[in-house]
Design a protein around this nucleic acid. Structure first.
Length: 282
DNA sequence: TCTCAGGGGCGAT
DNA sequence: ATCGCCCCTGAG
């Protein structure tokens, strides 16, 4: 086991919040299932002594470092965005999620599954999909499943995908998996500037402004963007007084103008904060 | 058992 | 720019 070291981070909000749907919360540990990696985090009761392990390759510290973005100075980010009164309040209440850098295909497919669903429901769907289509691995006598490879999803029928509770999203998931397998997405997507990359993503059937922004923030590291879902828009209108009739782009630009290059971090903190409260009322 | 909304996007007006 | 609809599930 390896020592886990990311100070000032609320791990529960980081992996069980709204940016990743592939973590299982067990009584004594968290287990994350990715395309080619399982990550286990334990000893959480002593926050200073939390440890991690990776499978099938053990002690894969480069994976951990990249996934949890350990090169990012969280303290610096907090210093910059906590000038805002709402962010400051959220942070004072010990809500400090960290942004992850997740696998591209997995992120895209996961968010295609998210439309008009609650978070618990999204998690259930993705777990069922992994259990059925992903490879099995045994850890400490328990079975886990890797997130399915994109080719497998592309070769799964829409009806089969619907068995995972995907409903009308099944077609989007299958079509986009095929799209990726056929190499139709520009391979340099991770090097394009924000607006170009977003344009490319929106060519995928089922991907609009919001899902594109989720992929851009949670997988491609465009930290200056806050994806605007129903909660995000509520934060802007109810907390900051924006006109609800503003377009997605207008709201998005307003937020980025306010918080600058760390808007995504600010947005995530606010999102988890209001989501945890269940409402925006004081 | 029933209702309602849930981290959207598409296609028709 | 607005609106009905897509399908299913968790929460009350």
């Amino acid at each position: 086991m390896q020592q886990l070291n990311f100070p000032n981070t609320n791990l529960d909000l980081t992996v069980m919040g709204g940016q990743a749907f592939n973590w299982i919360k067990e009584p004594k540990r968290y287990v994350g299932f990715m395309v080619d990696q399982i990550v286990v985090i334990s000893n959480l009761n002593k926050s200073d002594n939390a440890t991690w392990q990776t499978y099938p390759q053990n002690n894969n510290s480069s994976y951990i470092s990249k996934y949890f973005r350990l090169d990012v100075d969280f303290g610096d980010i907090v210093d910059q965005i906590s000038k805002d009164v709402h962010v400051k309040t959220a942070l004072q209440q010990n809500h400090q999620p960290r942004l992850l850098k997740q696998d591209f295909d997995q992120t895209l497919i996961s968010y295609l599954c998210s439309a008009r669903k609650n978070i618990k429901s999204i998690r259930n769907s993705l777990y069922k999909m992994s259990k059925e289509l992903g490879d099995k691995v045994e850890i400490d006598g328990q079975e886990y499943f890797y997130f399915p490879k994109t080719e497998i999803i592309a070769n799964t029928s829409e009806n089969k995908l619907r068995e995972f509770g995907l409903g009308f999203r099944a077609k989007y998931v299958r079509d986009s998996a095929k799209y990726l397998c056929e190499g139709k997405l520009r391979s340099e997507i991770n090097k394009l500037e924000y607006s170009k990359a977003k344009e490319e993503l929106k060519k995928i059937n089922g991907v609009g402004d919001k899902i594109a922004d989720c992929v851009l923030l949670y997988s491609l590291g465009h930290d200056h963007i806050m994806p605007l879902d129903v909660w995000g828009k509520r934060i802007l209108t109810d907390l900051y007084g924006l006109n609800p009739k503003l377009s997605y782009q207008q709201m998005s630009e307003w937020f980025t103008n306010r918080f600058g290059k760390y808007s995504g971090w600010a947005g995530q903190i606010l999102f988890e904060w209001v989501r945890g409260r269940g409402s925006l009322s004081a």
